[in-house]
Each structure stands twice: as structure tokens, then as C-alpha cells.
Design a protein around this nucleic acid. Structure first.
Length: 507
RNA sequence: GGUCCAUUCGUCUAGUGGUUAGGACGUCAGGUUUUCAUCCUGGUAACAGGGGUUCGAUUCCCCUAUGGACUACCA
């Protein structure tokens, strides 16, 4: 095993949009593969025809692509072990089921779903759990207690059947999980799982083991929900006589508050996405991409949710994650998802973007608003407002004052700053501003401040009123930067307009 | 109900048989910014409980509690 080249796989089921927990599983597989010089495989596990959802397969691949997780072998990429979609490998599994039957480790079962359902209900009403296993199987309809002729007859007549694994009785199975360590489970507590369904498709358990073996997977890194079936999988490897891969079961992502694992509802309720990309089918859902998250921030956030480097570093590029990642440092317990921290990660990446990058990202939004500034001007604006935003789309909220004159004036600020003397003060200020020939931030600021100091006016009052008339609210970049970028004509227009409107309101 | 897994600030987590139990997010306060935000400084806040083992347990063991997963011809 140690000699073998490391090969890992992400094996999602195309039953809907890929949840961020799934993306994290894929990410950890990818990081592990790259860290060890191994291969990352994407295998589509679509053995359940009933739950197959059109578009889900593309969604999975698009999501990984967006996140920067590169698939080495997969449905789109191909590879030496193709095909990578289980429905395209359908004929492979049958003979492995047969192999197990001939070894006596599996058997045919003819019980109808209705009959089993009835049995379950009946047991439940008595307060016990029905198990198709070592205690009940001899009372049920299967090849273990039918004669060979009967079995052959039923098979020949085309009767529906499933193949079940014959779980041995009372054996302690010891196995190791890379994250949780040694574990032991007694086989008597495990039921006889269906390996092969009556529709001619294998179940997850069979297909998964067969494909992992055939594709020479060395490490199975998957969600914790699979931990209970690990003993079964270990037994299957033994029955086949195959060397089992190493297993690592990742803890789950939990709701931000309350009980249970993260679900779509939490996102809807608390206003954050639970999926990487927009899901356009059926019940639609927004994605991190559409909400304006940078894929690097998204990946960084996900990587730190359940794994840590053991240092105090929190910001990691993909390359740094690859270099630092190890399964040993994955935590044992579930992680609550914190949407606030997700935003914080994005803000950090946003601040790291160059002004030019942000111009390219922001320009379309500005154009949508009906404005067409030169890239140079937009760059200047961005440099002034960038530090107060965490997302590209926040930028408009910060930058609109450069495009649109205030329509309203914050009543709170008006009440606090605008009094009977204000109109006169503002008209004086207006004349000072109008008189400045070189209309730059530096000389205008100097002139205005000198004028204030020389006169009877209060600096704070004048400047705050000036801002109110320019912007309408008490926030935004350095006042004189706004004035410079807005230009003399527009500045005077805003002053005149404000004086007029606020004077009439007060009197 | 049964099986398995887990448990350090509100959240993500580091860490150790003897530490002032560290960092980050959030939050609070102060400073900077004559605005808001950023930024800086500081504060807040945790070893689930009970038994052991030990000179000494947050750390090792057991029990309990709590949380989680699984318990389909779904993955």
C-alpha cells in the first residue's frame, strides 16, 4: 500500500445541487491528493435512478471548477479507469455480486418490498427494530432457506430479487479511521445490506467498494455519515480478498444555531447560501458565487471549517492549503457554520484585490446603474471607498455619491446640524468654494479651512454641513476627496440645491 | 429504541499530566478619522457534569448528560 501512488476520489450522487459540505469533502480530497503528489478522481455515483436529477452532474463539476478544485480523472476529463459514471459501469457490478454469492458471502432474497415494509411496521408497533440479519434471515424468503431448485426456478422465471450480504455472526471487526483511530464493531449488530437491487443496479455499498478497488483508490475521505457502514465495507473488502484503502471520515457541518446539520432552510432563514453556485432547477437556490464571494475566499473559509494548520495563519491561497494540509489535523467533531466568518474571509480577499481588478469587477454594476465613468475615474473612486466594503456589490452603496446628487438629507443629521444660521454660513462657504481656481483636494481643503479659522464659524459645524449637502448623509470618504472628484460645477450645484431645499424646510 | 461517533470562550479552534488555557470571528470600550467605515489598543468570554488513576488532571480511564450520524431494493 505504501508503495502505491496515492489516489483519492470524490464520489457524489447527482441528486440535486452540491451542498457546501460536499464541496468541503471534495476540497479535502483534492488538498490531500496534491499534498502527496497523488491523483484526484471525480466519480459520479448515480446508481439510484429514481433520485437522479437532471443538471446535478454538471452542477457538481461546475462547482468544483469554480472553486479551483481541479479534477485529474473524471467524467469530463476521462482517464485510464474510465468510465467514471457508475451508470456507465453497470455491467461490471453484476459479476462481483455473483462472485460473493458463489463464495457464500451473499445470497438471493426474494422478499417483496411490501412484505418487508409490513414486517418493519409490525416490529415497530411492538417497540423493536426489524433487522434483515443473522437473527431473522432464516425466517425470510431467500436462497439461504430455499432449496437450490426453488432458487433456480425463481431466478429462471424472472422473479425479482435482490442480493444481500451475509453478515457473519458475532465477530468483532477491528478497523482504523485516520481521524478517529481504532474502532471495533460486532457483526451481529449489522444487518444484511442489499448489495444488488432488483432493478439491476448495485447499491452504493457494492458499487463503491468495487469501483474504489478497480480504480486503485488508496484513501477514502468522505463524510461522517458513512462511518456506520464502514464495518460493512471492511467486510466486503475481506470477502473479495482485496486490500482495503485507508479511511478518513470527515465531521459534518452543523447549523449556525440550534440543532442538526446544515440545511438549505438555515441559509434561507439566516440569509446565507448553502450552495456554491446558483441552482436553477425546481426549488431554486442562490450560491456563493452569485452572492459575490470570491472562490478563493470561499475555499479558504471551507478549508478552515474542520481543519486547521496548527499555526495562527488563517489566510491561505490554494497553494498554501495544499502545502499545509494533512488529514491528521482534521478535527473530530462537527463544525457549526458561521456566516459572519464567511463574510470576514471575503472581506479579507476583497481588500487584497488590486484597484484595477476591482474596476473590472465593478464597472458592469456601475454601467447597469446607467453610468459610464472612465476606468481611470472609477479606479480613483474605488481607491477612496474600497476599505469600507467587503464585496464588490457593496461598492455601489459606498460609491453612489460620486454619481448621484443627494435627493434626501438624513433627518437625524439635519436636526443636529442645520439651524437658523446655517443657510448664511453655507452661502458664504459656497462663495469660498467657487473662488478657488485650482480645484484640488489639497488647495481647496487648505483654503476652506483657512477661511473657517479666519471667520466666526465653527469648523465642525461647517464641515459637517458641507458633507450633508454633498452627500446627504453623515458618512463616506474624506470630504475634500469627494469634492475634488465631483468637480467644481457639481459641487456648487449640490451646495445651492441643498441650501435651497433645507432653508425652505426649516422656515 | 438500537449501533457508532463526538464534547475547550456565543462560534471556528490551538494546546498541555504542573500554562496567566493561546489565536481568530462576534461583541464591548478607548484611540485615530472634525463624518461613517477601515485601522490601532484594550476588555469580555471556555476545558459539559460526576467518579476514579495520580503528588497533581482540561489532558489518561469509567459513568452520566448533551449533541450528531446511521438504522431503505438512498447515497
Amino acid at each position: 500500500m505504501t508503495e502505491r501512488k496515492i489516489r483519492v476520489r470524490f464520489a457524489p450522487s447527482p441528486t440535486g445541487p452540491l451542498h457546501i459540505g460536499g464541496v468541503r469533502t471534495a476540497l479535502y480530497n483534492y488538498l490531500f491528493a496534491r499534498n502527496t503528489g497523488g491523483t484526484f478522481i471525480l466519480r459520479i455515483e448515480d446508481t439510484d435512478q429514481a433520485r437522479y436529477v437532471e443538471g446535478a452532474e454538471d452542477y457538481i463539476m461546475d462547482s468544483l471548477h469554480w472553486a479551483g478544485i481541479k479534477v485529474d480523472e473524471g467524467v469530463r476529463e476521462g482517464g485510464p479507469f474510465a468510465p467514471y459514471r457508475q451508470s456507465d459501469r453497470k455491467e461490471i457490478y453484476h459479476r462481483y455480486a455473483d462472485e460473493l454469492i458463489s463464495k457464500g458471502d451473499a445470497y438471493y432474497a426474494f422478499d417483496s418490498p411490501d412484505e418487508l415494509e409490513r414486517l418493519r411496521h409490525e416490529h415497530e408497533s411492538r417497540g423493536v427494530t426489524f433487522n434483515y440479519g443473522c437473527v431473522s434471515r432464516m425466517n425470510l424468503c431467500n436462497s439461504l432457506n430455499l432449496t437450490a431448485e426453488e432458487v433456480a426456478g425463481r431466478l429462471a422465471s424472472g422473479e425479482h430479487y435482490v442480493v444481500r450480504y451475509r453478515m457473519p455472526e458475532n465477530q468483532d471487526i477491528h478497523f482504523t479511521d485516520l481521524i478517529r483511530g481504532e474502532m471495533v464493531v460486532n457483526t451481529s449488530t449489522i444487518d444484511d445490506k442489499v448489495l444488488y437491487k432488483s432493478d439491476g443496479m448495485p447499491t452504493y455499498h457494492l458499487a463503491n467498494i468495487v469501483d474504489d478497488h478497480l480504480m486503485e483508490i488508496t484513501h477514502v475521505i468522505r463524510g461522517e455519515e458513512w462511518l456506520p457502514s464502514l464495518p460493512l465495507h471492511v467486510m466486503l473488502y475481506r470477502s473479495f480478498g482485496w486490500e482495503a484503502p485507508l479511511f478518513a471520515h470527515l465531521p459534518l457541518l452543523l447549523k449556525p444555531t440550534g440543532k442538526g446539520k446544515l440545511s438549505k432552510r438555515d441559509g434561507d432563514k439566516m440569509g446565507f447560501p448553502v450552495f456554491p453556485l446558483y441552482w436553477p432547477y425546481g426549488e431554486t437556490a442562490t450560491g456563493y458565487r452569485e452572492e459575490g464571494y470570491f472562490p478563493e475566499a470561499f475555499v479558504n473559509m471551507l478549508a478552515l471549517l474542520g481543519w486547521n494548520p496548527g499555526t495562527e495563519q488563517e489566510i491561505f491561497s490554494m497553494e498554501e492549503l495544499i502545502a499545509a494540509f494533512s488529514i491528521e489535523r482534521v478535527g473530530k467533531s462537527g463544525s457549526r457554520f458561521d456566516p459572519e466568518k464567511a463574510k470576514w474571509f471575503n472581506t479579507r480577499y476583497f481588500q487584497m484585490k488590486s484597484d484595477d481588478e476591482l474596476v473590472a469587477l465593478f464597472m458592469p454594476l456601475v454601467n447597469d446603474k446607467g453610468f459610464y465613468p472612465s476606468p481611470e475615474k472609477l479606479k480613483k473612486i474605488i481607491s477612496l471607498v474600497k476599505e469600507r466594503a467587503g464585496f464588490v456589490r457593496d461598492l455601489w452603496h459606498e460609491a453612489d455619491l460620486f454619481f448621484v446628487a443627494p435627493e434626501t438629507y438624513d433627518p437625524e443629521v439635519v436636526r443636529k446640524r442645520w439651524n437658523a444660521d446655517s443657510p448664511g454660513q453655507m452661502r458664504e462657504l459656497r462663495d469660498v468654494v467657487a473662488a478657488v481656481q485650482q480645484f484640488t483636494s489639497d488647495n481647496l481643503e487648505q483654503t476652506v479651512k483657512e477661511w473657517i479659522v479666519a471667520g466666526p464659524h465653527n469648523t465642525g459645524t461647517i464641515l459637517n454641513l458641507f458633507r450633508l449637502l454633498m452627500v446627504g448623509v453623515s458618512r463616506g470618504p474624506h470630504l475634500f476627496d469627494i469634492v475634488e472628484l465631483t468637480g467644481r460645477d457639481e459641487t456648487l450645484r449640490r451646495l445651492d440645491n441643498g441650501i435651497m431645499r433645507l432653508s425652505s424646510k426649516v422656515s
